[in-house]
Design a protein around this nucleic acid. Structure first.
Lengths: 340, 340
DNA sequence: GAAATTTATCGAAACGTTTCGATTTGTTTT
DNA sequence: AAAACAAATCGAAACGTTTCGATAAATTTC
């Protein structure tokens, strides 16, 4: 392997001079710079990034940890973080926590290989986060809440989202609204449910029969919906903890000969790409993913500058109205949002 | 920052002993190991990965370069590479070429920060690839063809895909089949078109009016379809270079009051997630993405072992039949696949 | 044209690890 | 109890850079 030493020798200068020349310092005269560059080219010299980082004590890269590196959910978010990172002259690399303690995420976090991290991954333990966050490596955690030095939090206002979606259904006249949530370890899902319950409570509605959990997958939504429909009484609307589950719901409903929105209204959560192409297009709650991404990245850089303005941020959420909801057909007497 | 030196001092042993203890070597006695581990914990010691890599002269990570880190296209492919990488005890990180020569991709490739790379990104120059590939860092390039030492290629058999899709339409009785391709720098698109032309030629069909280019986006498909429909004669079927463009096509057709598949049949390419949820569900050509991912990763490891069995691999492709095609309504006399 | 100043180059230390060979300690053999 | 051996620990070199302080060369000043 050709090193800077070889380049220096080949160019007939000292190692240190070669280093200066290669890094474009103006301490070196134009003609020696040329000489060195030429030598480097001839030998096909490629610098060793580690050695550099080791000496410089900073890596200029920030790490994005995702739960599986492949979900459709992340697109916009990644785009956001990437833009900010790049414009700060830093690099962004992504990895996943697949593999548990042997995962790339663990290694990079524990081995001080990055100058900051953005974590969107429920699998990374709080312990690891607290252990890894430090001066020189701030961490922003998304969609969950973890407290600690050099740790900040960014999340969508899931409570608000859950509340508004439910409210929206109620204003269309629904009172029998089912909830099919995500896995219980998802803080986001919990909060959405919280908003849902709050809306219900305001109207004095008590729902005990129609609260199920899926696991945020299409499969899960499908099955949960099926058990829901096998009960004797049906709700007139279903609120799903995310869009994937709503897709599963569509399928289950179709199998039961029920149509959306005539027989049951549906609202999802997330606004993934598919949502608008479903038939009927899915009314859902959009998370400001791009904004969350940029926000997270900005926070990292702010923290690097020593500013820890605030530890926790909540971003507003937006209801996207499409065609999967309408007033319930069997309760015309309940009016259209007049009961408030 | 606490280093192994501090740990050694705190534990009252030599630096080298501390190193042995921390890396679990059996050269060290159980009780000193305990001692060192204890000291490390007390000081919250975290090893510096770079220093290690520098000494070890290998990084045990492989890099996945994508054009934007966020396309829905990649999901399965990433999953494939990830599984193989992980089971080889290596790490996988992903990055994009956004930012050109300042991009993370360039930096990591040029600075010998990884032991291998998988590139699915038309923006990375062949020059850079050839320069970066070397003993100790093989590179697998996907969906394009680049020749060079330590470089291998993996692609779907796009010619076959284009051929089969067209053949399928012809067997339904179509003869007037339009092609809306991707950007001209996409080798995949070129190959698909090649297959398309070959199928046409076999039947002695010459199509000159209905060949357009989009840019692989929904927007592009929409516009190309519109200009296609503004001509006086319409084709009875359209074959799109990818699914995104087909989605744009659906929209344009709807605007022209034409319905799929009654008025015009459509087939796409890729089988992205949305495809099956469109109405009507899109008939398309599925690329074996997961297999491509695993294949690429396997090749990297094989190459690390010094085996360069073969430089180029083509994977078979599969037609996914859904509901966007039917025989053309205005040419019942042309039969149903009888003309072969 | 010698002294003072600037500019260009050099040597060496440092970054935090791993690992080789040497030394010390402890255990077994005679 | 000394000799022979194994086990545990240590010191130092090495990995490939960057960068500080020192030296040498070139330029300016008087």
């Amino acid at each position: 392997m050709v090193t800077i030493k070889d380049v220096a020798k080949h160019a007939g200068v000292a190692l240190s001079t070669a280093s200066y020349a290669l890094s474009g310092s103006d301490k070196v005269s134009p003609k020696t710079r040329e000489l060195v560059l030429q030598a480097a080219k001839e030998l096909n010299y490629q610098k060793n990034g580690f050695a550099m980082d080791l000496k410089r004590k900073s890596t200029k890269t920030i790490l994005l940890i995702l739960s599986d590196l492949s979900g459709p959910y992340y697109s916009e978010l990644i785009r956001g973080t990437q833009e900010v990172t790049l414009s700060n002259g830093f690099d962004l690399i992504a990895c996943s926590s697949v593999g548990g303690a042997d995962s790339t995420a663990y290694k990079f976090l524990q081995e001080r290989r990055v100058d900051g991290a953005i974590v969107l991954d429920p699998n990374i333990s709080e312990h690891l986060l607290r252990e890894s966050a430090r001066e020189g490596c701030p961490i922003v955690v998304m969609d969950r809440y973890v407290e600690g030095d050099f740790i900040m939090n960014v999340a969508a206002d899931n409570v608000q989202g859950g509340y508004e979606a439910t409210r929206y259904l109620m204003e269309k006249g629904h009172r029998d609204i089912a909830w099919i949530g995500g896995p219980s370890n998802s803080l986001g899902s919990q909060h959405r449910k919280e908003g849902y319950l709050k809306a219900l409570q305001e109207e004095g509605i008590v729902n005990t029969k129609w609260m199920l959990v899926g696991n945020f997958t299409e499969e899960g939504g499908y099955h949960s919906t099926k058990v829901l429909l096998m009960q004797e009484e049906h709700p007139t609307a279903i609120f799903y903890g995310n869009d994937e589950m709503a897709i599963g719901g569509y399928k289950a409903l179709r199998e039961f000969g029920l149509s959306v929105p005539e027989d049951v209204s549906i609202v999802g959560f997330d606004d993934i790409q598919v949502a608008e192409y479903l038939s009927p297009p899915l009314t859902t709650v959009r998370q400001p993913k791009y904004e969350m991404g940029t926000m997270a990245a900005h926070l990292v850089f702010q923290a690097m500058g020593g500013e820890y303005v605030n530890k926790s941020y909540k971003l507003k959420i937006e209801l996207i109205e499409r065609l999967s909801c309408q007033p319930p057909r069997l309760a015309p007497n309940r009016g259209k949002g007049m009961e408030t």
